[in-house]
Simulated scan of single mutants.
Amino acid sequence: MEEIRSSTVLPAVRQDIELHTADGLTLVGELALPPEGRPAATLICLHPLPTAEGMMDSHVLRKAAYRLPALAGLAVLRFNTRGTTSDRGTSEGSFEDGEGERYDVAAALEYAEFHDLPNCWLLGWSFGTELALKWGHDPLVRGAILLSPPLKRAGDADLAAWAEFGRPLVALVPEFDDYLRPPEARERFAAVPQAEVVGVDGAKHLWVGEPYVRIVLDEIVRRVNPAAHPLPTKV
């Protein structure tokens, strides 16, 4: 057996996909499916801020797609929001500061529904957490996992709306985050009775370092497919 490293890519059925928004844009993405069998659940990934180099290949999301189909039986859908570029290509349109992106979130959920992807969870990171909180109130969504939520564009009204939505909400908050640290996060998310805030000692906003990536992926799997938790560290 070999230890899983930052560069490890495990088997999956990987498909380049396109999403089509209600306002007429084509977005590029990838769907990674388990190498065998039907997925236990689906992660719809919402990436960090594209004006700060966020994209579908931002490292935690990429590593989720590289590992979780094989290790946890998950489908991982990643895509570039409007105007965002990665190796997969550039999505049409231009950055709209989290407003026009509501159509991007809807297009991803529509794709998941049309392709019968089960148990859909939103996985947002930084800017992506704001898209999840603002635009993720869809019957298809089983819950959301937020990595480094800044709670800037998404505010108290969005938290109240998620409280009413009633679906699980898990916020993974780095001890040394640049925008929102665990004590304040617990105060803010108290507005959502079903929310859970998990402070991660030593972590920073970008989750750099394999130990922190493992914590994030383990916490994701604990929620969306508990039978596969804890994840192995060797394959």
Rank of each mutant, 00 (worst) to 15 (best):
L147V: 12
G24N: 07
V60M: 00
E110F: 06
L71S: 04
A163Y: 00
A108I: 04
A64N: 01
P211T: 04
L172K: 00
G128N: 01
P150Y: 02
F114K: 11
V216N: 05
A203H: 09
I44N: 03
G73C: 07
K234E: 15
T51D: 06
A195T: 11
R82T: 12
A185N: 10
R82H: 14
R222W: 02
A107T: 00
T85F: 07
L169T: 08
A190L: 06
P150M: 09
R167G: 05
N80E: 06
H47C: 02
F127Y: 09
A72P: 08
V216D: 05
S148A: 05
V197W: 00
L180R: 06
L10N: 05
S58C: 11
L169M: 13
K204S: 11
V208W: 07
F95G: 04
L117K: 07
F95Q: 07
R186K: 12
L74F: 05
G209D: 05
E18I: 02
L140P: 02
R14T: 08
G54I: 01
G73K: 10
D201Y: 08
M56S: 00
E175M: 04
E36S: 08
R188I: 09
K204M: 15
W162Y: 01
K152Y: 12
D178C: 12
M56Q: 11
P232I: 01
H137T: 07
D177W: 05
L231R: 01
R167F: 05
V141E: 10
R153K: 15
V200F: 04
E175P: 09
M56R: 05
F176L: 12
L74G: 03
P11M: 14
E219V: 14
R142M: 12
L172R: 08
G166D: 09
V216T: 13
R67I: 15
E96Q: 13
V197S: 02
A108K: 01
P226K: 09
E101A: 00
A40P: 10
G128F: 10
R214V: 14
L74S: 06
P211W: 02
